[in-house]
Write a protein that binds this DNA or RNA. Structure first.
Lengths: 251, 251
DNA sequence: GTACATTGCGTCAGAATAACACATTAATGA
DNA sequence: TCATTAATGTGTTATTCTGACGCAATGTAC
């Protein structure tokens, strides 16, 4: 895989990569899709290189799709990272030898890489983490338990979540993170988990329904302890409209 | 200049550039600093390449500083642009010949460039547009009268303004765009110009003073028609604090 | 049945917002 | 000189939004 790219490195944008922060929601936890590649002792964000004949957005979709199998989901560029030494230590001499990378090819690989960060919101239940190769592990890891990551991936992850938190105030969230039918308490848990703070049930209900993107279904969730909560779904059209126009006007 | 870079192109990040949207405010108009280089018939955003030994943020500061002479101002990355054909037509055969660029060097220049967009807010009165060379023109142009730009620079400019409009709701603005002493009507005009809509004087005053970043001075603006407006200045400490913590909490 | 946790719905005071009225100030020109 | 004009400074009021909370309804566990 890496060798294929290096052998055809003229087909890829040099010194430029894409890293995706893929968020999912399950068991009332915010999850992040991380990968661990052969020989590495740290986890990393799924990433990839940019073919010279692809828009960067298209390359990001490729990265997302290759790891999750889904497409047509919420994917948004949020920042570009380019500190001088950010990948200085990534491919050390031993690693290059291990992968039998020739010196000339290694130069292409070890230069400073600037990486474009994208974050994605996906429906956890629809994703089957998809290792790119035999020696790659792909896993959902709870955000609060994300271990040490390679390079500046922790910084990238933090920035992605910061961006998501800010954008929560500008757009509706949930369509891409929840199954088709869901309950208000579930949606609230999603918000609480992302924001990492408690919200008042009753005020949340009022605010979220006032947006006008929810359809109350004639069903209740079954097999639950305590009172069965109502099921809701998103009104796709209105959701898209609000997504486009934004929530708060401010000034 | 360009030749210097090409002759030492191994010192620059390949296929990667920086473009700055530099906003200023003067005569109740939102101005953008644009440049026109030798032989070009269209204007462009000030931009530059990225030395391999500089953080991308540092490279952006260099671009801004080289064109405006100021530093320590508001400068923020907002998006990265990388459509496949974005600079296909930029250096055509004739132009390359005109600049006497060798074929090998031309390859470095004509590949797809991904560009990182930054926007800056600067005090118009402190800026002396600074052409990088004899054949370069640097000028403040009113936003509404910006002519056709090269490449996708119009898209970059639009995105910068969109970002600024959104961020108006998240942070205070004005410190970097106005002189030290200013009036509330001036500040309001700034907001109105950026948002491109009228605001109510009285409501604006209330909202802006409630933020707690303004200091009312014991001075009135002199030499003005009609009633002399009060002068204000920003309380730097409180301004910085609000900048860091944000304005609207939302959820 | 009773205790308990959770959901659904409602209330209320205070804050924020939008729309608007009126007095004040300084240059202008009849 | 003095009314006119076009701005600025300072309210007021009705409405909406927000945060904090009460209480009844529902379904499980014992």
């Amino acid at each position: 895989m890496l060798k294929d790219i290096l052998d055809n490195n003229e087909n890829y944008q040099p010194g430029l990569s894409i890293d995706c922060v893929i968020f999912g929601f399950h068991d009332n936890q915010l999850k992040v899709l991380l990968i661990k590649v052969e020989r590495a002792n740290k986890w990393s964000l799924p990433g990839g290189f940019i073919p010279v004949d692809q828009d960067i957005d298209a390359a990001a979709i490729t990265v997302l799709n290759s790891r999750t199998g889904v497409d047509g989901v919420f994917l948004r560029q949020f920042a570009t990272f380019g500190k001088v030494n950010r990948n200085d230590q990534h491919f050390d001499k031993k690693t290059l030898e291990y992968f039998q990378i020739e010196e000339e090819k290694a130069k292409w690989l070890t230069r400073r890489f600037v990486t474009i960060g994208y974050y994605a919101l996906v429906d956890f239940s629809k994703i089957h983490p998809n290792p790119a190769g035999r020696f790659e592990v792909v896993e959902w890891i709870e955000h609060k338990e994300v271990p040490e990551l390679i390079l500046d991936h922790r910084e990238i992850l933090d920035k992605a979540l910061d961006t998501l938190r800010i954008e929560l105030n500008l757009m509706p969230i949930g369509y891409n993170l929840l199954p088709e039918k869901f309950t208000i308490p579930e949606l609230q848990k999603l918000y609480e988990t992302i924001l990492d703070k408690k919200l008042d049930r009753r005020n949340f209900l009022r605010k979220i329904t006032n947006i006008g993107i929810l359809t109350k279904l004639d069903e209740k969730k079954s097999n639950v302890a305590h009172k069965a909560p109502n099921l809701y779904s998103f009104d796709k059209d209105k959701y898209e409209e609000v997504l486009k126009n934004g929530l708060n006007q401010g000034w």
